[in-house]
Structure formats: C-alpha cells, structure tokens
Amino acid sequence: MRALTVFPRVLAALLLASLLAACDKAPQFNATDITGADYGAALNLPDASGKSRSIGDFSGKVVAVFFGYTQCPDACPTSLALMADVTNKLGEDGKRLQVILVSVDPERDTPELLGQYVTAFNPGFIAMRGTLAQTKAVAQSFNVFYEKRGDIAGGKYTMDHTAGIYLFDTKGRARLFVRYGETPENLLADIKLLLSGK
C-alpha cells in the first residue's frame, strides 16, 4: 500500500522536473547564437556629432551593430532598410532597438555624411567613425573583414566587407550574428526574444 502512495509523488516530481527543464531551455533563435563572445568590448568610437559612444551607453536596449560605408552600392543600404522596417514593425518597442553603423571607410565617410546617411533611413540610427587605426582595431575585435577594391589611387574604390549584423541584448552582451539576407520576419522574431529578456 505504501508503494502506491509513493508512486504518485515520484510521478509528480518527474513531471515538475520536466516542466522546469522545458522552461530553462535556451530560446530558439533564427540567427547564429554567439552568446559568450566578447565582441563589442573595443567598440568606443565617436558618433556623427563627435560624442564617444560604446555598447554600454545603450543599456536596456537591443543594439544592432554592423560595418559598412556610405558609398556601398548594395549590402549597406539593404541592411539599413531592413533595420528600418523591423524598427517600424516593433511599434513602441522600436524605441528599445538601437541601430549602429560603424564606418569601414573613414577616409571618405565624414561625420556629417555618415549622420545624414543613417538618419535618412531612421532618425534614431547612429553612425560611428574612428581613425584608420581605431577602425582596424574595432573590426578585428568583431572578426570583421574589410578591404579596398578597384581604383584606390583615384579614390573611386569600393569596400569588400563583412555584411552581417551583430545583435547585443539589453544587458550589452553579444548574442546573435545575423547573416546578410535574413528575412525581416526572422530578424523581428529574434529581436523580440532579446527584448523579452531571453
């Protein structure tokens, strides 16, 4: 008789344990999970107004960082348009998403030009620009590749560069790498998860 009264308790304990395990499961992101990476620690550059900014300045927000330049013919305007679309679809939560473009072409991207460029997509977007040495250091800290191609001497070159987007959670931790070409729906879902504290 005693064994019969113990069995329901064991069953209840196992059920509770399985429910807790399900609750503790890692969120299912669409982008590549890079949780634990130390990307962003070296990101401390002036914005278009000359104010030095870092990831820590945006506590409480999801931060989207990508590398590009104003004369980019495809990836950069596509990524900015994608982020503008996602920001709009977030509604009020769009205020809790900070988009940052880090220039890989500081020789041609003046602060004024960068500021006008990113805010044309959304007034809340920020551009950062460092010296050549700072740009190299920050790019290396993110494992970002960039290189001039074409008429370098004539100043009519293009820049080959890593085109993905790095997402940081509301506590400033690197969480996701979003590959170029991701759908707005998948990106939106991932950002909502990060905003919810996942």
Rank of each mutant, 00 (worst) to 15 (best):
50 G>K: 04
85 D>K: 15
88 N>K: 15
1 M>H: 07
145 F>A: 04
44 N>T: 05
2 R>E: 13
3 A>Y: 15
33 D>F: 08
187 L>W: 07
96 R>D: 12
169 D>C: 09
51 K>H: 13
43 L>M: 12
122 N>V: 02
30 N>M: 12
144 V>T: 04
110 T>P: 02
6 V>F: 14
40 G>V: 00
93 D>W: 03
31 A>G: 03
178 V>M: 01
10 V>P: 07
64 A>I: 10
63 V>E: 11
91 G>I: 09
173 R>I: 05
190 D>P: 10
62 V>K: 00
15 L>A: 12
46 P>F: 09
118 V>W: 03
61 K>L: 06
106 P>Q: 01
179 R>W: 04
184 P>K: 13
168 F>D: 01
123 P>G: 10
35 T>H: 11
3 A>P: 02
10 V>W: 13
6 V>R: 10
117 Y>T: 04
30 N>T: 15
51 K>G: 06
25 K>H: 14
144 V>L: 08
198 K>M: 00
197 G>Q: 11
173 R>T: 13
100 I>N: 03
184 P>M: 03
13 A>D: 00
175 R>G: 01
22 A>E: 03
17 A>S: 12
27 P>E: 14
61 K>I: 04
35 T>L: 11
143 N>D: 13
52 S>W: 06
184 P>G: 08
182 E>H: 11
162 T>S: 14
105 D>H: 04
137 A>I: 04
64 A>H: 06
150 G>T: 05
59 S>H: 11
111 P>M: 01
108 R>L: 07
123 P>I: 06
